[in-house]
Design a protein around this nucleic acid. Structure first.
Lengths: 247, 247
DNA sequence: TCGCGCAGGATTGTATACGATCCGCGCCGA
DNA sequence: TCGGCGCGGATCGTATACAATCCTGCGCGA
C-alpha cells in the first residue's frame, strides 16, 4: 500500500523536458525510506511510537537488512531516534521542535534565495521551474490530497533551493524537508490549501522582482509565521487518543 | 583516537555538573563511521577514491553489515556518494565544493550565534565552555597534532552551535563538520595553528561583547575568508600524485 | 581492423542465521 | 509484604550465505 508513496517521491524532478535524468535503480532501501516517511505522514506511525524492524520487514515483505539501512539514514536525518539495543522511535514532535525545524529551514531557504538572486537566476528558466512546481501544488490542492500537497509543497521549495546552486545546501534542506513533510501531513496546516497556493504565487512574484530583503521577509513570513499558531502538541495528543479508541 | 570525538559529541549539555550523561554503547557501526572519517582525514582515502565494503570489513576485522550501515549514514551526510550496484566513493572535493560547504556552515553558525546572544548565553557558563574548547585547541596546536587540531576546532564550533539551543541546527552542523574535518585534516590549513588559536580568542571576545552584527562579520571572516586562498584542488592533486609514487 | 556479444570475476544488494542485550515476570527468602 | 534475583521472551547487532548487477576482456565474424 505505501507502494505509490515511493513513486510519488521519485517524481521529484520537474522532469519531462530533460528525459533520462539519472534514474537510480530503486533498491529496497529506497522503498523502505519512502514507506516509513509516508506511514509517518499519514499517521500510521505517530511521533514517539516505537518502530520495530522485524515488524516493518514482515509488513513490507522484505528482510530486516534494508530496513535497518533505511532507519540508519532516517536517524542521521533526525526523523527517527535510536538507542542501541533498546529500539528506534519516530522523532518526538513538540511545538518547540517544530519551531526549531522551521527556524533553520527558513534561514536555509533565505540563503538559497539570496544566492539565486545574486546569480541572477530569477530569469525566464528559473521562474518557469517555480511556476511549474506551483501548478503541481494547485493540482494536489484541488484533489484535496493532503499527503500529495505536502509533497508538492516540498517540491516547490526544493526548486527554490536548487536555484541557489549549492548542492550542499540542498542536501541539508532535504533532511529538514522529510521532517516537515511528516509534520505537514499530520497537521493539515492551519490555513486552507488554496490560500497556501496563493502564498506561493506571491513568493514567485517577489522572487521575480529580485529584492533580496523583500524575499527574505516574505519567506520568513511564509515559513515561520505560518506555523506559529498551530497547537501541534494538541494535534498529536488527539491523534494518539483517536488511535487508542480503535486499535 | 576518534574516541574523544564521540565523547565531545555527547557533551551536548553546556555544563559538566550533570555527570553521567547517557553514553551510548559503542556499536561496530559507530567505530566504522569514526574509522572512515579518520582514514579520510589522514589521507588514507582521498577524495574520489573508491571505497570497497569487503575491503574495509576485512581491514577492520568485522563483517560487511555494519560497514554498509556506516556508509549509509555517511552517504546521507554527503561524505560519500553511492550509486547502486556500482560502488561508493569518497566525496569529490573541489575548491567550489569547499566554498559551498563553508558558505552554508558559516550561515548556520551565524544563526546559532544570533540565537545564543538573543537568549543571553554569553554569560559566565557559556564563555567558560568556549574557553575550555579553546584550550583543547591550543593543546593540539602545541602537539602539532593535525588531526587532533581539526577535531578540536570542530569541538569549539560545536560548542558555539549548541549555545544556540537548537538541536536541529546542531544536527545539520554535524554533517558539515564531518566534511570540514576531512578537508581540514587533508589540507593543513593555510594559516599556522597558533594564529588560528588566536582567531578563536578573538571570537570569544566578540561573542562576550554581545553584538550580533559584529559576531556575524567575525564568524564569516573566520570561516569563509580563511579558506578562500587555499588551492585545494592542487593539494588533492599533489596527494594523489604522491601516492602514485609509492603504493 | 573493428564492432559486437558474451562469459567470468568482482562488487554490491538481500536474505537467513546466530549471538548480545534489555525488559518484564514470577520465585523466594527475610 | 516486599525487595533482590534469575530466567525467558522480545528485539537489536553482527556474521555468513546467496542473488543481482556491473565491468572487463576475449573471441568471433564482417
Amino acid at each position: 500500500m505505501p507502494r505509490n508513496a515511493a513513486t510519488a517521491e521519485t517524481a521529484e524532478r520537474p522532469d519531462a523536458a530533460r528525459r533520462w535524468e539519472k534514474a537510480r535503480p530503486q533498491t529496497m532501501v529506497d522503498h523502505a525510506v519512502a514507506a516509513i516517511i509516508a506511514g509517518a505522514a499519514r499517521g500510521a506511525i505517530l511521533p514517539g511510537d516505537r518502530i520495530v524492524e522485524a515488524e516493518l520487514a514482515r509488513d513490507m515483505g522484505i528482510s530486516r537488512v534494508p530496513i535497518r539501512e533505511a532507519l540508519r539514514i532516517l536517524e542521521s536525518q533526525g526523523v527517527v531516534t535510536s538507542e542501541p539495543y533498546k529500539g528506534i522511535r519516530l522523532m518526538e514532535v513538540s511545538h518547540a521542535r517544530l519551531e526549531q525545524v522551521l527556524d533553520v529551514r527558513s534561514n536555509l531557504e533565505i540563503l538559497a534565495a539570496r544566492r539565486a538572486l545574486e546569480a541572477g537566476r530569477n530569469d525566464r528558466a528559473g521562474l518557469a521551474a517555480l511556476r511549474k512546481a506551483r501548478d503541481e501544488l494547485d493540482l494536489a490542492a484541488k484533489r484535496r490530497d493532503v499527503y500529495g500537497f505536502a509533497l508538492a509543497d516540498a517540491g516547490f521549495h526544493r526548486v527554490l533551493c536548487e536555484l541557489g546552486g549549492n548542492p550542499v545546501l540542498s542536501m541539508l534542506w532535504e533532511s529538514l524537508a522529510r521532517q516537515v513533510t511528516i509534520i505537514g501531513g499530520l497537521a493539515t496546516l492551519g490555513k486552507p490549501m488554496p490560500a497556501i497556493v496563493r502564498e506561493h504565487d506571491l513568493l514567485i512574484k517577489v522572487f521575480a522582482r529580485g529584492s533580496i530583503d523583500e524575499m527574505a521577509r516574505e519567506l520568513h513570513e511564509h515559513i515561520v509565521v505560518m506555523a506559529h499558531d498551530i497547537d501541534f502538541d494538541a494535534i498529536v495528543a488527539r491523534r494518539i487518543e483517536e488511535r487508542r479508541q480503535k486499535p
